[in-house]
């Protein structure tokens, strides 16, 4: 019969077994090192520490919190802050991106090229740097309350933060974070939207013009629905990026989930548990955004024969 080491079927099974074995050994070695080192450092493993007192203060909270509350509550505060930034960022960035994206297609040379400059400048510098710039060079350099900059008495800017109508007050940290995230993501979204609109065949424009529709209506009824098909997948990526980039809040001192988790690690040394918490949080957020956008995506697909 055929020698077993040349038998296609045998080799297939052997490869499966060898790969399982190899991965198992590697995992075992890493796990072994991990438990050994944890014991050495006296850290151990367990989530009980979440019940103990946090003993650190958090600058901004959406729910009541004080330093005698548990780590668990602190992390919850951080999570809510992250979600707040992400959701606001996604909404504002989409608006900015849509405006700039359409501006990139304007017949007005000045408007078109100003949009181009905006996109090319913001896309080619690191977000972190932009956040530092907005926070340090702008928001905390703003004049004091007495000399605050005021826009028609509705929006006031001073070194403590931003005052918006309806009594909303946003700290300097949150202002810088939202502004930075929005403008950065807005640049990428602008290109996605521009690409999507341009991808709709020229013939659609021409057919609509021939029917006598005005440009505004053509855009709304014919072009945008078809462009959305192309836009939604890369847009999903950008939304995920906004959620992930919100973790840079640590750079401007805004207490998001990563900042709180990192502080928790610094105080408790519980590396593995904190790492798992961070992973679960962000993966859940990513998954939620992906699922939502995918459902949206499906409703936009063309129905074919």
């Amino acid at each position: 019969m055929t020698h077993f080491w040349r038998n296609r079927k045998f080799l297939s099974i052997a490869a499966q077994l060898i790969s399982v074995f190899t991965v198992a050994i590697v995992v075992f070695i890493l796990w072994d090192n991990l438990t050994y080192n944890l014991e050495l450092l006296g850290i151990g493993f367990g989530f009980d520490f979440l019940q103990s007192q946090a003993s650190f203060d958090i600058g901004e909270t959406l729910i009541p919190y004080n330093p005698t509350d548990s780590y668990y509550r602190a992390l919850l505060v951080g999570l809510l802050n992250s979600l707040r930034v992400s959701i606001i960022g996604i909404i504002l960035a989409t608006i900015v991106g849509a405006v700039v994206g359409i501006a990139r297609l304007s017949t007005n040379w000045l408007v078109r090229n100003l949009a181009l400059v905006y996109v090319e400048v913001l896309r080619n510098t690191p977000l972190l740097l932009q956040l530092f710039f907005w926070y340090f060079a702008v928001f905390i350099s703003l004049p004091k309350l007495e000399n605050q900059i005021s826009f028609f008495g509705l929006i006031n800017l001073n070194n403590k933060g931003t005052q918006l109508p309806f009594g909303l007050e946003i700290s300097s940290e949150l202002s810088a974070l939202i502004l930075g995230l929005t403008l950065y993501a807005g640049a990428f979204i602008a290109e996605i939207i521009r690409g999507g609109i341009q991808s709709v065949a020229r013939g659609q424009w021409e057919a609509a013009r021939a029917l006598g529709l005005k440009p505004g209506l053509i855009m709304r009824l014919v072009i945008l629905p078809q462009a959305l098909r192309v836009i939604i997948p890369p847009l999903t990526s950008q939304y995920l990026n906004i959620a992930k980039n919100s973790s840079l809040a640590i750079a401007v001192g805004y207490p998001d989930i990563y900042f709180v988790a990192s502080t928790t690690f610094n105080q408790t040394g519980k590396a593995v548990e904190v790492m798992l918490l961070i992973m679960i949080t962000y993966l859940t957020i990513s998954l939620t955004i992906s699922l939502t956008m995918n459902t949206l995506n499906r409703s936009f697909q063309l129905k074919e024969r």
Binding site: L240, K244, N245, S246, S247, L248, I250, Y258, S262, M275, I278, M279, Y282, L283, S286, L287
Partner: peptide
């Protein structure tokens, strides 16, 4: 791909 880079760097 689901984690922010800063999380990966932390890890």
């Amino acid at each position: 791909r689901g984690l922010p880079l800063i999380g990966i760097l932390f890890i």
